[in-house]
Design a binder for these strands. Structure first.
Lengths: 218, 218
DNA sequence: GCCGAACCGTAACGTACGGTACGGCCTTGA
DNA sequence: TCAAGGCCGTACCGTACGTTACGGTTCGGC
């Protein structure tokens, strides 16, 4: 039985359906992977029959929930006109800060948990259910797509020097995230205050510029 | 009912018990979290009654399995006498290479998957079962404990400059791991050849030295 | 040889949960 | 006003799996 919700777009959702997915999302954050269809139905004040009609099965509900959350975090593109060291620095700090906020949020942690847990070697019966791919696509790869143009602009402005944008991005990623995500996923209490995130963003940006900044020596 | 196997040490295990845990470990790598007690018993050619007598319950078996694996990866300490830039570089590259090999191994991925999956907000009934803490302790924190003395030695030898060893370690960690672990955990195929690992180790070490190397300018 | 302990293999029990069916309510449209 | 459809609440079914129970076998000690 095919789910009637379009998997690809994540759009064409009734307000009611969005409310149901929001309930599922909240439940996911509160209870982790072992959320039951009954619990979702009760929380959303809908019947299980409706859940199955709309989303097909538990996998479909999970997938729709993840995509619904992903569709909510569309980000604003960075303008890259008039790029100088100051604006590039600000952009990088902004990216770093946003990314740290994302990966330390309860929602992201819960979604990554369920995606990681379902990414075992057994799954992947048919083409569906690759939650890991969805999370990856809307997380790490989305970040890369948004950041790389900035890096390229920085290179063309003569501020940055690198031959491989992908490698430069991954270095930036490492400098920003470090051990934060894996520690949070493994349950380490690690309270990131806004001040700490801001400081980390500045540090990561400075380190990145130290590694990839164009040598403007004498 | 208390498990008869000492949880803390992971020692005092019969050869037979070690064999059973090895079987569980293999099954964990092959099948992910949904390994059943029946499957373990069949694979290990033992009875379920024995599993319950030895490990208490499924949680106990999982915990014992993780600790058994952790106890197997005792690493050799690095000697830090006669430290110069060449030997420090070699040590750092060795650490980076070893760490990349670990986090990209099937065993590590499987163990981290199950630990992440069980680290939800609901668990933690009593003091037991903090698989996340165990994995973290034998992974990230063990690496920090081994690497920090090397960094300190480098500083005292005048090769490195930093004020916070923890911060320096975390930067090194980020430069080495980057997005590798989260991508692998989320199911991204990402084949790391020995050559790629070696190259990454060299790159990460050079970047780290560029950031934290003592300025020996003219 | 005999006894008890440890252990294997398997059958059985209880429960949790995914999935389905159904009766009743409410809305919509003719 | 009435019929049809969408949806809620709930009862129900089947299965998977954790957990327990039990008969049979091996092995060390006396």
């Amino acid at each position: 039985m095919q789910a009637s919700v379009d998997i690809d777009t994540g759009e064409a959702l009734t307000e009611r359906q969005k409310a149901v997915l929001d309930a599922a999302l909240r439940l996911l954050v509160e209870e982790g992977d072992q959320l039951t269809m009954t619990a979702v139905a009760r929380r959303a004040s809908c019947s299980k029959e409706t859940l199955y009609k709309w989303f097909g099965d538990r996998d479909g509900l999970l997938t729709a929930t993840v995509q619904w959350q992903a569709s909510k975090v569309r980000v604003v593109p960075v303008d890259r006109k008039g790029l100088d060291l100051a604006s590039l620095t600000a952009s990088l700090e902004r990216f770093a800060s946003d990314w740290l906020k994302v990966i330390s949020s309860d929602t992201s942690i819960a979604l990554n948990r369920v995606a990681v847990g379902r990414a075992g070697p057994i799954r992947r019966k048919d083409g569906k259910d690759d939650l890991g791919a969805i999370v990856l696509e809307n997380g790490r790869f989305a970040l890369a797509r948004r950041l790389k143009p900035v890096l390229e602009a920085g290179r063309q402005a003569g501020i940055l020097e690198f031959s491989d944008a992908e490698a430069a991005f991954r270095t930036f990623f490492g400098l920003v995230a470090r051990d934060v995500q894996i520690r949070l996923l493994l349950g380490d209490r690690l309270e990131l205050t806004d001040a700490a995130i801001g400081g980390d963003a500045v540090r990561a940006t400075q380190q990145f510029l130290a590694l990839y900044g164009a040598k403007t020596g004498p």
